[in-house]
């Protein structure tokens, strides 16, 4: 066994350099050269400020915004520095309590909406950072958002359609709506200046602005 020690140690050093340094550096170099946007986190930049990532959801609970999936990250929802799911089992009473509280919150924000609530709006995502909701979950919220913003339902629905991603290649995955991008487009369509930096510039650069 002793004669194997020298090859073992030198081999470990060489393979460490090769697979632990050369390989990740090569991938980083190529990624930064050819796909810098994606490699750096698909950031949404507005007036030099990073205001989010296309791939990471944010928390919304005001009636004028579309709400995303419930998030189980700590200490606050959608904490992108500590991803996590709820891990609640299907028969855990806490799971039902959490879902019940979410149903109550959705109904309180939108009294009179009697349609059944799509399941993705009451269940926590796996990552706690899911940027998407199902088209059904968006449709459920259209009336509430348009009422809160005093916008035409059809205008809001048009925005939802514009931010609905189809199945990839028409086949893979599920249809989905990007919540943060949809809400940013709503801000662009609305007159409220909630975005950092000058609002007019945002509105001017937004392609998604519907006619009012």
């Amino acid at each position: 066994m002793r004669e194997q020690i020298r090859p073992a140690l030198t081999m470990l050093v060489i393979l460490t350099v090769l697979t632990g340094l050369v390989y990740p550096l090569a991938v980083t170099g190529l990624a930064q050269m050819f796909f810098p946007d994606q490699a750096n986190g698909s950031l949404i930049v507005h007036n030099g400020h990073v205001i989010g990532s296309k791939l990471i959801g944010q928390f919304f609970d005001r009636p004028e915004y579309f709400w995303g999936r419930p998030s189980a990250t700590a200490p606050f929802p959608y904490n992108a520095a500590a991803s996590g799911g709820s891990n609640l089992g299907p028969t855990n009473p806490v799971l039902v309590e959490v879902a019940k509280a979410r149903v109550t919150a959705l109904k309180a924000a939108d009294p009179g909406n009697q349609t059944p609530i799509p399941v993705d709006l009451v269940t926590a995502s796996g990552s706690g950072l899911d940027p998407h909701i199902s088209p059904a979950a968006a449709e459920y919220q259209v009336k509430r958002v348009s009422r809160a913003r005093r916008l035409d339902e059809s205008a809001v629905r048009t925005l939802v359609t514009q931010h609905t991603e189809e199945r990839q290649f028409g086949f893979l995955g599920e249809r989905r709506v990007n919540v943060l991008e949809l809400n940013l487009a709503l801000e662009g369509a609305d007159s409220g200046a909630r975005l950092p930096g000058s609002h007019d510039e945002w509105a001017a650069t937004s392609n998604d602005r519907p006619s009012r």
Binding site: V119, T123, A124, S125, G126, R175
Partner: peptide
Amino acid sequence: GQAGGNMEGKE
């Protein structure tokens, strides 16, 4: 419009 089913912990 939705996948439905048990979506707890799924993306």
